[in-house]
């Protein structure tokens, strides 16, 4: 099963919400769609699911064109940010509804739901209403519903952004275990780049409706194609020096180090982060962030340097990477 998106676009009125989106997701591959809010991540997902109309381009499930197929006829399993569980039905009934309308026999339904509840570890909660579940449990029910659909493609729309940070970290390996083992294409929309890097095989960065780069997390971090991606991926954020002859030079905070000679700086403030410390510096080239081990002593007279191989160069007007 391969999901192929070719030159996909959606236009509402005069505005293109997304355009020229090209993406291929293979069996068992997870691609994270990241970008700032309003960049068209969710719209792209809704187009694949068939919930919004495609204005141009094509969507292929295994070479079969489904661009204009109805949502009810596409085998798509989607997990929504708001979970979208039916509030008037119990957990069991929520899971059963889809099976029932798809014509699964009652005895079969019982068995499959029971197995699925075991898998997501909610055996004892089959008869309660969604409102009585915690956020993480609701999330697992929504996931179970998508899994029971046994779809061709999994679409996860910010599935964890309503959960607190600790729960998110706990659920991440579980999500891997449940969804990524199914050997189906997975698209995971998130605004959390940590989540994207932790889960995805490849990351597609979306900015104002266009995909700017699709690459592995490491490649994206080390060779960002645009200044936007360089700034968007990686925390603490990359340092951008003052543009020189239309060229922006950017250096990651961890690539900076103290030296005898270099850029003279003044320490503005300091954040201790446990495994590292983050220093906010002021330099003639503008403010800088420097990340280093907490054991590093801060000299009295600060000079900051970096190796030339750690520099990223971008065109100041277009934001494109320069060789």
């Amino acid at each position: 099963m391969t999901l192929q998106i070719q030159d996909l676009g959606r236009c509402v009125g005069q505005n293109w919400i997304v355009r020229h989106v090209n993406l291929q997701v293979d069996d068992g591959e997870c691609v994270a769609l990241v970008g700032p809010s309003g960049c068209g991540k969710s719209t792209t997902l809704r187009l694949i699911a068939g919930l919004d109309d495609v204005s141009e381009g094509e969507i292929l499930f295994d070479q079969i064109n489904v661009t204009h197929a109805k949502a009810t006829q596409r085998a798509v399993g989607m997990v929504f940010q708001s979970y979208a569980l039916l509030p008037h039905l119990s957990v069991f009934d929520n899971l059963e509804l889809g099976l029932r309308v798809r014509g699964v026999r009652p005895s079969d339904r019982q068995q499959r739901i029971q197995d699925m509840l075991d898998l997501v570890q909610l055996q004892s909660r089959a008869d309660v209403l969604p409102a009585q579940l915690s956020g993480g449990q609701r999330q697992r029910v929504a996931l179970a519903r998508a899994l029971l659909r046994d779809p061709d493609v999994y679409l996860l729309d910010e599935p964890m952004s309503n959960l607190d940070a600790q729960l998110r970290e706990e659920l991440r390996p579980e999500l891997r275990r449940l969804v990524l083992n199914r050997q189906k294409p997975v698209i995971h929309v998130t605004h959390d780049q940590h989540e994207a890097m932790a889960i995805a095989d490849r990351i597609a960065v979306l900015h104002s409706g266009r995909i700017q780069q699709v690459a592995t997390p490491a490649e994206l971090y080390q060779h960002p194609e645009t200044l936007f991606i360089a700034k968007f991926i990686g925390r603490p954020q990359i340092n951008c020096l003052r543009p020189n002859n239309g060229v922006v030079c950017a250096i990651r905070p961890e690539s900076l180090f103290f030296a005898k000679e270099g850029l003279p700086c003044k320490l503005m403030s300091r954040e201790w982060l446990g495994s590292s410390q983050l220093l906010y510096l002021d330099s003639p080239q503008g403010p800088l962030r420097l990340s280093c081990s907490p054991s590093v002593d801060i000299p009295e007279v600060l000079h900051v340097s970096w190796s030339a191989s750690d520099e990223h160069h971008f065109d100041a007007s277009s934001g494109c990477r320069l060789p």
Binding site: R46, A49, G50, L51, K70, A71, T72, Q73, R74, V76, G77, M78, F80, S82, A84, L86, L97, G98, V101, R102, R145, R149
Partner: peptide
């Protein structure tokens, strides 16, 4: 009504009547 409820149902294969 939150529109996601109906969206989710569409993806489950429920027709308009259902």
């Amino acid at each position: 009504l939150p529109p996601e409820l109906e969206d989710a149902a569409k993806l489950e294969g429920l027709s308009l009547f259902q």
